[in-house]
């Protein structure tokens, strides 16, 4: 399947430039409920991640905590799971979420990403206020978004999760906001 955002994919030149990539077809899953952290533990993953933090488990992907009892598991380099989304409990009180289908995944990299995001988002995403490992559930260009600050291929990036029906809209708003930063790079 081709990237639904192919026509919008935008990459400027130079290391300083911002790059927005579409990870909609990369694997992600989620689990929620009182049994969620036990389930993580039983799979050898850390369950003591504070809400709104993201933890890099190297080849086992990223674990993102959205509350005390909601965790997303993100695999930027794995293809979307081809199985049907589970709806039955994975363990007592651990309900799977349909992140693969409900949320689009965009990844933003480049030095001025916090300054660019300030055109769209009211949360300070500068390194001081939003260090690596931090997650913000907030709004971007008037729509809800989850922003995670993590490393990807040795570079600090923002992963953006927006409702999949808003992916084109969000990408359009991002690309418009990015253009002033990338003019010199092209």
């Amino acid at each position: 399947m081709a990237s639904p955002l192919q026509s919008l994919a935008f990459e400027g030149g130079g290391n300083e430039a911002l790059v927005l990539r579409d990870f909609r077809l990369a694997r992600r899953a989620g689990v929620r409920g009182p049994g969620a952290s036990d389930l993580l533990t039983s799979h050898g993953l850390p369950a003591d991640i504070a809400p709104n933090r993201i933890s890099d488990q190297s080849d086992r992907g990223l674990v993102m905590a959205l509350s005390q009892r909601e965790f997303w598991l993100l695999h930027p380099d794995a293809a979307a799971s081809s199985q049907q989304p589970d709806s039955a409990a994975l363990a007592a009180g651990a309900w799977p979420l349909y992140c693969q289908h409900s949320h689009a995944w965009l990844m933003l990299s480049g030095e001025p990403k916090a300054a660019m995001m300030a055109k769209l988002c009211g949360v300070d995403l500068g390194d001081g206020a939003f260090p690596l490992g931090q997650v913000a559930q907030t709004q971007m260009a008037h729509v809800s978004v989850v922003i995670a600050h993590h490393d990807y291929q040795n570079e600090a990036v923002f992963s953006l999760f927006v409702d999949q029906s808003l992916a084109e809209y969000a990408a359009g708003a991002l690309i418009d906001a990015m253009s002033e930063f990338n003019q010199s790079g092209i």
């Binding site: 399947m1 992907g61 799971s81 081809s82």
Partner: peptide
């Protein structure tokens, strides 16, 4: 569809 294959339909979800 590429979704047709259920070969990986195990309960392992990550």
């Amino acid at each position: 569809s590429r979704w047709h294959s259920r070969a990986a339909a195990t309960r392992l979800w990550f």
